[in-house]
Simulated assay, not measured.
Amino acid sequence: MYATARPKRRRLLRDTLVAAPLGAAANALLFYASAAFGAFPQSVLVPRANAPFSVVPVIVFTLIGVLGAALMFCLVLWATPRPKRVFWTVAALVFTLMFFTPFSIPGAPVGMIVVLELMHVVAAAAALWPVARA
Rank of each mutant, 00 (worst) to 15 (best):
P52F: 02
M98K: 02
A126W: 06
A49L: 09
R11G: 01
A126D: 10
R14A: 14
I64N: 06
A5L: 05
R9C: 05
F73D: 01
T96N: 09
T80H: 07
V86A: 12
L93Q: 04
A69V: 00
G65T: 05
L75P: 06
L71H: 05
T80L: 02
A92F: 07
R48Q: 10
W78F: 13
A3E: 14
V86E: 04
S54W: 01
V76R: 03
A20N: 04
R11Y: 04
F31L: 08
V121F: 07
W78Q: 15
N50Y: 06
T4S: 14
F53T: 07
V115C: 04
L22Y: 14
A124L: 06
K8Y: 13
A24E: 03
F40Q: 08
L93D: 09
P81G: 01
R14I: 15
V56A: 11
V60H: 01
T89W: 07
A36N: 00
R82C: 04
I59S: 00
V44T: 06
L67Y: 09
A28W: 09
V114S: 12
R133H: 12
F37E: 15
A70S: 12
C74M: 07
F100Q: 11
P130S: 12
F61Q: 10
T16Q: 08
I113Q: 08
F103I: 11
V86T: 12
L30G: 14
I59T: 09
R11K: 06
L118N: 12
A3Q: 12
F37A: 15
F95D: 10
I105V: 15
D15A: 13
A127I: 09
A125Y: 06
W88I: 03
V58L: 03
I59Y: 00
V55G: 02
L93C: 02
V122F: 00
A24W: 04
K8C: 11
G111Q: 09
L63Y: 01
A69K: 01
C74Q: 08
R6A: 14
Y32R: 08
R9L: 12
P81D: 13
V66A: 03
A39G: 05
M98I: 06
R85Q: 10
A49R: 07
M72P: 02
V110H: 09
L118A: 13
Y32T: 15
A79R: 12
G68S: 05
Y32L: 09
A70H: 01
V76I: 14
V66F: 03
V110F: 11
L97Y: 05
K84W: 11
V122G: 13
F37H: 15
F100R: 08
F40E: 05
L12V: 04
F40R: 02
A92H: 07
P7W: 00
A124C: 05
M72A: 14
V94S: 07
L67Q: 04
L17T: 03
G38W: 00
P57R: 00
N50T: 06
T80R: 05
S54T: 11
L77M: 13
P41Q: 01
F40A: 03
L29R: 00
P83W: 00
V76C: 02
P81H: 05
V56L: 07
I113R: 04
L30F: 05
A123E: 10
Y32G: 03
W129E: 14
R9D: 10
R11E: 10
L30K: 02
A134F: 03
F31W: 01
N27K: 05
V110W: 07
A33G: 08
F100P: 07
F95C: 10
L93A: 15
A124Q: 11
A70G: 04
